[in-house]
């Protein structure tokens, strides 16, 4: 698989879905997708050979009031990595689930993001927490969760002379 084939994929995406992307280097395609028709676009990509959902990353941008989700897809056929980025509103953090496209793998990735960022995935029937035990606070990987403050409050004693330094 060479750079030429990567550009062909990009052209095809641009003509069929009106989604513009860039090829940063051979085998690395980056796309910004809209939320409407996202699952259909993913289905098309999977049929095109992108069978392996390597990971889903969430990035919190509180200043811009949104979450960004990055889907990293690999094609065993074309040997190309597509990173598909989509932005959702931070106040109403709901996203369509891609479990019907990538099944078990998507479900686990979405469970993790739901727990650590508090994003809802519509259509995922198992969003039970993975890592945290009886957690009721703010999802801890959000930028507005201050873990230093949390650790201080929870694990250090303000009145203990040796532990007071954590508060100063």
């Amino acid at each position: 698989m060479g750079a030429k084939e990567d550009l062909e994929i990009l052209d095809k995406i641009a003509s069929e879905f009106k989604i513009k992307g860039e090829m940063r280097r051979k085998g690395r395609i980056w796309l910004d997708a809209p939320t409407e028709g996202f699952v259909d676009f993913c289905k098309w990509l999977k049929e095109r050979g992108f069978e392996h959902l390597s990971a889903i990353s969430a990035i919190d941008w509180p200043g811009e009031g949104m979450y960004e989700l990055a889907y990293h897809l690999w094609s065993y056929l074309d040997k190309t990595l597509i990173t598909l980025k989509v932005k959702i509103d931070r106040q109403n953090a709901v996203m369509d689930s891609v479990t019907e496209v990538w099944d078990g793998s998507a479900q686990a990735h979405e469970r993790e993001i739901h727990e650590l960022f508090g994003i809802e995935f519509e259509g995922n029937n198992n969003l039970t927490p993975l890592f945290l035990e009886d957690w009721e606070g703010l999802p801890p990987f959000r930028k507005d969760f201050n873990w230093r403050e949390y650790v201080g409050e929870k694990y250090y004693d303000r009145h203990n002379e040796r532990e007071r330094v954590y508060y100063d």
């Binding site: 990353s57 990035i59 990293h72 078990g104 686990a108 993790e112 993975l130």
Partner: peptide, 26 residues
Amino acid sequence: YMVSDGGDKPYRVKIRGPSFLHMIPV
């Protein structure tokens, strides 16, 4: 996956471990 906003620390790091999928769905 590493994101930088131009500062001296990464803005966000996502780590994808192979065991994540091997130990849950598989």
